[in-house]
Design a protein around this nucleic acid. Structure first.
Lengths: 193, 193
DNA sequence: GACTTATCGACCAATTTATTCGAAAATTTT
DNA sequence: AAAATTTTCGAATAAATTGGTCGATAAGTC
């Protein structure tokens, strides 16, 4: 192995896949070790505990989400497109990051305080991004937003509402449709007539 | 509850769903009990052990497979269609019966001798069905089969070959395509010119 | 060949978990 | 409604699992 960081990344990928299939509790260190083709005890040379691995995995997924989102809104110009992209990419990516949303929603995991840390940090970041989009939209006279902070919060809240069923029922029944509906309401309430 | 059989069926359905998600080992009696909204110890009034539940689940799935297959070949007349139906329905149904194929393929489970019993019994039944189709096809002068026993075995073997990836990689990449290819080879080697 | 880095097997303590058991509900029979 | 039976359950337990430790040892570097 070249260096520790390199190997830690490998652990995160491997463990992430297993966690995402069986969840934190049902995943054993032995399985992770097997996945890495290593002795179980070797993992402890790189990570303090199973929980630390999970934390790294969740953080990793949170970073993926952030990256996908920032590139998604950079890829277009108009505020409408930015917001659309943001919302869509958010849901699409979210579906894949099962460890992230399990960490957030699973009651058996909420005693990990790192979960709350990551979540609240990313909530704030997200809010800032949405506010920025709204702000630019308002500047370009495409949106009419009286209070960007509360509007951003409203948007964020409705997006959160869409996350819930991801956890409760894996079936992606009609997320996309419901997303479109929300977007529709959002724009027609927000667009300058 | 009306009677024990009724309740056993309920257990089989509930436990089957959990087993199919987490596998035999990772599924706990507590989870099954929770799924049934019952005390854990109550289950033992109906089943001797976790293993017996799993056996019942696997048997249940094996029966589903058999039923689907017999109705599938009854639904058409021509031997070609029968064979096509048989092969397709077999694969389609097999994908859903994860406990059945896990029982067959998972090395951590092969110490359960009931698995071997069920498997060998159904192998024989399957062979008989295939032979029957071949036999009727030969009678109607649609197939030309020199030795129906060995031909049936050959067909069964190639079907088994398609099962393997189901276990190793959940992704149903190209099962259908490969199935078509096999069918193509099969018919053009078997059809009377 | 000393010194550091990385891997591992054996082991342990704590937790989990399948199963048991006696007793209490719930239901049926008398 | 008492007695008998069936069904449910919580508490207890014995066995297995599992996260984590530690000393040894291999692999690599100076």
């Amino acid at each position: 192995m070249i260096n520790k960081e390199e190997f830690r990344r490998k652990v995160i990928i491997t463990a992430g896949a297993i966690f995402s299939r069986y969840g934190f509790k049902k995943t054993t260190m032995d399985e992770i070790a097997k996945g890495l083709k290593m002795g179980k005890s070797s993992i402890y040379y790189y990570f303090e505990s199973k929980e630390e691995i999970f934390e790294a995995v969740v953080l990793h997924e949170a970073n993926i989400l952030r990256n996908e989102l920032t590139t998604a809104i950079k890829s277009v110009e108009s505020p409408v497109e930015k917001l659309k992209n943001y919302v869509f990419v958010r849901m699409k990516t979210f579906e894949k990051l099962s460890n992230y949303y399990n960490a957030i929603f699973d009651k058996n995991l909420d005693h990990f305080d790192f979960v709350e840390n990551i979540r609240s940090r990313y909530d704030l970041e997200e809010l800032a991004i949405i506010r920025l989009i709204l702000y630019h939209g308002a500047r370009k006279k495409v949106f009419s937003v009286s209070n960007s902070e509360y509007t951003a919060l409203a948007i964020q809240t409705s997006l959160k509402g869409l996350e819930v069923p991801l956890f409760w029922q894996k079936k992606e029944v009609n997320i996309e449709d419901r997303l479109n509906a929300i977007l529709d309401v959002l724009f027609h309430g927000i667009l300058k007539k």
